[in-house]
Design a protein around this nucleic acid. Structure first.
Length: 217
DNA sequence: GGCCAGGACACCA
DNA sequence: TGGTGTCATGGC
């Protein structure tokens, strides 16, 4: 276990409190949100999900039954709507395999096997796969995103230019294997990245300011 | 009007 | 293998 990583986690947790991610009511909604939030502000995704909810289609069976054009209309606020409708349909097909017991399926094989299966779905990349595994299937797969790479590079957690898989491996090798910890840690990094750590590594509101200063950042 | 937002994929050298 | 273009809406 890496003491510095845990110290950073505790500092963020003290400052922001528990994040209680993912912002969704069901595990299936997490899957939909994970696809729609690709390169998109969450507020726009929330609108799209609200549209699906208003259509009473926020279940695997009902969403899958929608015509492509209808789905495109509903998810329009989340951007890239044609692309995302196509990709979301691919994910829905995967979730519906073997009678739709997707969550049990993801939990009865090894983590990496479940991850490989998700990555084989068109439109599911590493971040989306890990988000689904962690937040929808409750498996300990650390989610790396733009914020994590940006922040980790600046803070000196890992080198600038570190790739997704390297960063994920780093967190998973240096933190206890704990789904709840991975859940909160990623959510806290997003909270940090989306608020105070956008433009510069050191600023007054940042809960890590003292640590950054100590490291000469 | 420009930039950015919780990516992924196709294409090319 | 790595870099670049594309996909699109909404807030600031």
């Amino acid at each position: 276990m890496n003491k510095q990583l845990m110290a950073v986690y505790r500092a963020l947790h003290r400052h922001y409190g528990p994040q209680g991610w993912w912002p969704a009511k069901t595990n299936f909604e997490v899957c939909v949100g994970a696809m729609l939030t690709q390169n998109t502000a969450w507020e726009n995704v929330a609108r799209a999900i609200a549209n699906i909810h208003a259509e009473k289609a926020l279940t695997l069976r009902r969403l899958r039954a929608l015509p492509r054009k209808k789905l495109e209309t509903l998810i329009k606020p989340s951007g890239y709507f044609r692309l995302k409708a196509k990709r979301l349909m691919c994910l829905l097909d995967y979730l519906a395999e073997d009678g739709g017991g997707w969550r049990a399926r993801m939990r009865k094989v090894t983590l990496e096997e479940a991850r490989e299966a998700l990555l084989a779905v068109h439109g599911v990349g590493p971040e989306t796969a890990d988000s689904i595994l962690l937040y929808a299937a409750q498996r300990p797969s650390f989610v790396v995103d733009k914020y994590t790479l940006r922040w980790g590079g600046r803070y000196g957690i890992f080198k600038n230019g570190t790739k997704y898989e390297e960063a994920r491996n780093f967190f998973m090798e240096h933190l206890p294997e704990n789904e709840k910890l991975y859940n909160e840690y990623h959510a806290l990094i997003v909270r940090l990245g989306a608020t105070v750590c956008k433009a510069k590594p050191l600023c007054a509101e940042c809960p890590l300011a003292a640590r950054c200063a100590k490291r000469g950042l």
